[in-house]
């Protein structure tokens, strides 16, 4: 019976992608609010307003387009932005990322980057001391069940996540992979690296992309720094995202060549 539910979930995943991704991000957002109800409000208001405003403007211009997809990067921004940032800075970075990463291509799903990662990277570029942060442990733990849901539904390609962990372990050495690293790494891989629109779509491409992200996180990470370097993770994801279409094209070209050899 459970198998039937999972099959139904996987079949519906494409149509309910936005809803499922928002459901996955809801628990950590709630925990964030419960921990600091007073300070979280302005940030939430800023990112949600910025996201919906951008999406609405483009929907109006094009005469079509769902707008709620923009809330996914908004929530990611809310969770991973540094507390020192001002709400307007988050809103600005998010708006830029949404417009440049998705809306100019035709909306969410037509671009080729993880918008959440792009927004955090733009925040770091635009206001240099502000680098993405690993959220507090309760928030991080609350994000894990949602990550499981995304993996189960197929909205986060599992190959990317597995290969990302393997790449990190290979590049950093197994000694460095402590428990404190595992949870942020898992969340980063599921929510950013395994973005349904940012990751490659071919199986081998997903393995390669995951290995690349994992390796980049270990290589770019601040040497000897305590905990997990989120900014290294975000830039690793962005770099892998830039290469994703190329990786897919390469995988298909190799398959074409092998078929050509096979068929003479």
């Amino acid at each position: 019976m459970r198998g039937g539910h999972v099959t139904a979930l996987r079949k519906r995943a494409a149509r309910d992608a936005t809803a499922l991704r928002l459901i996955a991000l809801a628990p950590p957002a709630v925990i964030l609010f419960l921990r600091a109800p007073g300070t979280a409000w302005p940030y939430a208001l800023a990112v949600v307003t910025a996201a919906l405003a951008c999406a609405l403007v483009f929907a109006e211009l094009r005469g079509r387009g769902p707008i709620f997809e923009a809330l996914v990067p908004a929530l990611l921004m809310l969770l991973f932005a540094p507390p020192e940032a001002a709400p307007w800075q988050l809103a600005l970075a998010l708006s830029l990322a949404l417009v440049l990463g998705a809306l100019v291509f035709g909306g969410a799903g037509f671009g080729f980057l993880s918008i959440g990662a792009l927004a955090l990277a733009l925040l770091a570029f635009s206001f240099p001391p502000l680098v993405p942060m690993v959220p507090a442990s309760p928030v991080l733990w609350a994000a894990l069940p949602g990550g499981g849901l995304l993996l189960l539904a197929g909205l986060a390609p599992w190959r990317v996540v597995l290969a990302g962990a393997a790449g990190f372990a290979l590049a950093a050495g197994p000694g460095d992979l402590g428990f404190a690293q595992a949870a942020p790494l898992a969340v980063l891989l599921v929510y950013f690296a395994a973005d349904p629109f940012g990751a490659p779509v071919t199986g081998p491409g997903q393995w390669l992309s995951g290995l690349m992200v994992g390796g980049m996180i270990a290589l770019l990470g601040a040497p000897g720094g305590p905990g997990f370097d989120m900014s290294a993770g975000v830039f690793g994801v962005l770099l892998a995202g830039l290469f994703a279409p190329l990786i897919d094209a390469g995988v298909i070209a190799v398959a074409d060549w092998r078929e050509g050899v096979h068929h003479g």
Binding site: T7, R10, K11, A13, A14, A17, P66, G106, G107, A108, G109, F110, A153, G154, L155, P157, P196, F197, V201
Partner: peptide, 8 residues
């Protein structure tokens, strides 16, 4: 709309 590339 966009293609959501799910395994299903």
């Amino acid at each position: 709309g966009p293609i959501v590339p799910v395994p299903a």
